[in-house]
Amino acid sequence: MAKGRLGTVDGLIRETVSDIEKLRDATLSFQDATIVVLRADDRSFGLVVADVNETTEIVVKPLGKQLKGIPVFAGATVMGDGKVALILDVLGLAQEASVVSAVGGERHVSGRTSAAQAAEEELDTLLILGVGETQRVAIPIGMVARLEEVPRRALETAGEHEVIQYRDSILPLLRLSRLLGAGGMGEEPENLQLVVYNDDGREVGIVVDRILDIVEDRVVVEKPSDRPGLLGSAVIQGRITDLLDIRRIVRDVQGGTPELSERTA
């Protein structure tokens, strides 16, 4: 115990009582557990939490230099009540808890992700989109940040470009059907399908007629294209699909676009 330390008997008793209380609280916490089931690296695991509050949309802000290296956090956000909340990095959490193997470590055979398998068998993961009446086009999923649906009335114009207000900044829009010279679908729908594409940090929203599917398939370019914006055609899932040179398309258009995607400060 506290040998050689000066203290009152009172103080010693208070310390002991506080230790006992801590022990008691620790054991009680396992009687009624709320578990959030998470998934990382194709493994499921349960996170024991005190309470689940709500599901909400938030804006992720990065943590400062002093905290960036902590693997279990992906960032932080300001909640509706003004308090700061930390955002957990599910994969980091799983790795810290040794639920999945650490980055760079040996992968167990059963723990292989479908992405790893796809890479091994040389499959590509593609987002298949519908343009016009019947045309199908594909974009590698790796370049896609997010898929969104926005109401048509959210569209605004900045100069000659269509934009929407999106997550703290202005997102420039490109209409894929217009870019490919395909006819529109006739009547414009209530909601627009957007593929949010991230080009080196700047985001662009690509308006498409239909989001069809996400597929894994081996892509063999059957017919290289001389049309700008297309890499060629391939048969994907049994259908002829045009492969978009999305990077080129976005860059060509952005060449004329002012700095619309800069964050509003």
Binding site: L67, A76, T77, V78, G82, V84
Partner: peptide, 23 residues
């Protein structure tokens, strides 16, 4: 302040400064 578990001891937490999150 919002405490940050696993952070270096000198980090007391995060504060909300008009929407900016400050360590």
């Amino acid at each position: 302040m919002t405490p940050v578990p696993l952070a270096p001891e000198v980090v007391e937490g995060l504060i909300n400064l008009r929407g900016q999150i400050v360590t």
